[in-house]
């Protein structure tokens, strides 16, 4: 272990505090505001994107290293996976039996 890694991990601390803050904020928006359901979904959806960005930049070193291509590939496959899970789920659960009533 070299001297560099003994430096105080400000990045991690800020990221940790920010991700907790965004979670609490989302809970607050969902429980304690009078927005319509769709507005709440939009707001916490935007918070979720901030959360993902914090994870990528503060913890997952997305800007570090020479392996830009690998990072791009990884993020690409994660996005495809997320799309399969989200849209697959919506499709499967809303067609057929659910559609009938």
């Amino acid at each position: 272990m070299n001297a560099k890694s003994h430096r105080f991990p400000w990045n991690h601390l800020v990221g940790f505090v920010l991700s907790i803050a965004f979670t609490l904020l989302a809970v607050f928006v969902a429980f304690n505001t009078d927005f319509s359901a769709s507005t709440i979904l939009w707001i916490i959806g935007i918070f979720a994107i901030f959360q993902a960005a914090i994870q990528l930049f503060m913890f997952m070193h997305v800007t570090e290293g020479k392996e830009g291509k690998i990072n791009l590939f990884n993020i690409g496959s994660s996005v495809i996976l997320a799309l399969i899970i989200v849209f697959g789920t919506i499709w499967v659960l809303t067609s057929g039996h659910a559609h009938l009533h």
């Binding site: 996976l81 399969i84 499709w91 499967v92 067609s95 057929g96 039996h97 559609h99």
Partner: peptide
Amino acid sequence: SMLVWVHHFYTMGNSAAV
């Protein structure tokens, strides 16, 4: 492997397309 999961519950009453 990520694209076949519904075959475990064909009988739940999905649409023919699914």
